[in-house]
Write a protein that binds this DNA or RNA. Structure first.
Lengths: 298, 298
DNA sequence: ATCATGATTTAGCTGAACTCAATCATCATG
DNA sequence: CATGATGATTGAGTTCAGCTAAATCATGAT
């Protein structure tokens, strides 16, 4: 076969040969030792030669393996260096931000045009994920994370408070009458996401005595709850920052402007030292500027 | 991110840059042009630079792309040459044969020990597949294919005739009585694989008049039919070469030794010129020697 | 004797990589 | 000038290479 063996396997081989350890190679490549072991087994099978001599807890290169490693080491060094040269060149023109899908949809993406207008030379990439992403592994420059802050080994700054406020369509609100009390919510469908307790806490804080906090449909995610609310099914607790634009526009209303404050907030999180890169500093400034603005985007 | 971009994408890039054509690169890599296009798009996104300038029906390298290609070309040449050196070294010690799973299970694997004893220096790999494999793409040295022979661009030799014969367990055969006729098969369950017409043809050739050829369970593959027959469910048409060992042992019997001859046969198929490699010539000789033997393996 | 360590393996999972087919924008041809 | 060919692109759907998790094995250290 004139095709190359799996390049992933070559990478696993080169790293293992350099470290003389599959465990260290696995750490470097962000995979498990089992994955490296399998890759190398398959590479040896494809090539028809043994590359390593296995001892119980260590490796030695065979003569074939040592010869192959000498060339692979050079090849991978060339690949790494050429790739680093190119990506370094784009580093201050492309930034990757990670945040939750909800935050992206409701807060960040609507403002993106303002950032692009202010900084046409910087290309912002948004990686929407609930996963706890690894800066180095996932190529993330900066993150907006929802939580308590204080992430180990990272810098974080509180960016945006987070409070829940019940919102609904104007049509749904009209059914509450001209001067509603919180107990009138008993006449509406309470829409839940998986955190049912949020309604319970809000009703308690608002002083409601005749509303069953546990009643109403549950959606597995905030997006489902949001769409159901928009369809007029009832009233949902939404993060204020997500709906402030629609509240300003009047397409959504908050019949009871009582927020449920939370210890949780959105934090700007980045590797120590990241602000030395001009583009990241620029993005940070812009984000804080945006959270200080009172008017959401047009 | 200190990780490399996808090495598959680098391979797609290097081939496209060398050919200045994604279609030619796709042909070389045995993938579709769409796959190459997507790989390169993702690579450019990961690197944050444009590597190619697209014209309607052609490509040109950008200056970043030309610089990157200069290094990738060297890296891939190193990888290819080192890999070829090692695999050439194993070429006469490892051979890959492809054939159907049935042929492997029933004919080839039972004889493998004899080959290993005769040729301890040759490692035989069996790739069991019904797929029409590509010698070059799939790293196949020699094939045993069931069919009519005469494959374009390949040499083929008729290796083993193929005829169907009805077989069953001794217990099932006993229910037919001491001197059964083919019409007595009406009292047995006829076991089919997806080719129902085989029983019909066999019964016709055998002169049966009172047996319903279409009756009986159908298994989606030969293995299912075989296992059902072994479990005593009834009688199945099996390729004689597959069961001759069990017939010799007496674990299976052929109550009516009438074969259903076929134009189809097993053919030894290999690329023109392959016999110049000593190991392939050795394997060919051994295979013809095995089909000439009357006794199947112990 | 027991525990730690690193390699190996099996079973099961998943998303990167693929195919397929349609589309687009030229360029060649009659 | 109309038509067909060509090569790149893309969306939708599929698949299996590559992965994880967890268990096992064989030392070596304590």
């Amino acid at each position: 076969m004139d095709q190359l063996p799996s390049l992933s396997a070559l990478r696993a081989f080169e790293a293992s040969a350099r470290h003389l350890s599959m465990t260290l190679a696995a750490n470097e490549l962000h995979v498990t030792p089992g994955a490296v072991s399998l890759q190398i087994r398959d590479l040896e099978s494809a090539l028809g030669v043994r590359l390593f001599e296995r001892r119980t807890r260590s490796l030695a290169l065979t003569s074939d393996g040592a010869e192959y490693f000498a060339t692979m080491r050079t090849a991978f060094r060339l690949i790494r260096e050429a790739t680093a040269t190119l990506t370094m060149r784009s580093k201050d023109t492309v930034l990757t931000v990670t945040c939750t899908a909800g935050f992206a949809t409701h807060w960040l993406v609507p403002r993106l045009r303002r950032f692009e207008e202010a900084h046409p030379d910087i290309d912002l990439r948004i990686s929407a994920s609930h996963r706890m992403m690894d800066f180095q592994r996932d190529g993330i420059d900066i993150a907006i994370r929802h939580g308590l802050g204080g992430y180990e080994g990272l810098a974080s700054e509180r960016l945006l408070d987070d409070e829940y406020v019940p919102v609904c369509t104007p049509e749904t609100a009209a059914t509450l009458g001209p001067s509603p009390t919180v107990d009138d919510l008993a006449n509406l469908t309470l829409i839940h996401d998986v955190y049912r307790r949020d309604w319970e806490l809000w009703l308690q804080a608002a002083g409601a005595t005749r509303v069953n906090a546990m009643h109403g449909p549950v959606f597995t995610d905030g997006a489902g709850a949001y769409h159901a609310m928009k369809a007029g099914l009832g009233i949902a607790l939404m993060r204020r920052s997500f709906v402030e634009q629609e509240l300003a526009e009047g397409t959504l209303v908050a019949p009871f402007p009582i927020g449920l404050a939370s210890a949780l907030a959105y934090h700007l999180v980045y590797p120590t030292g990241a602000l030395e890169r001009p583009a990241i500093a620029v993005l940070r400034s812009w984000l804080f500027s945006e959270v200080s603005r009172t008017a959401p985007p047009a």
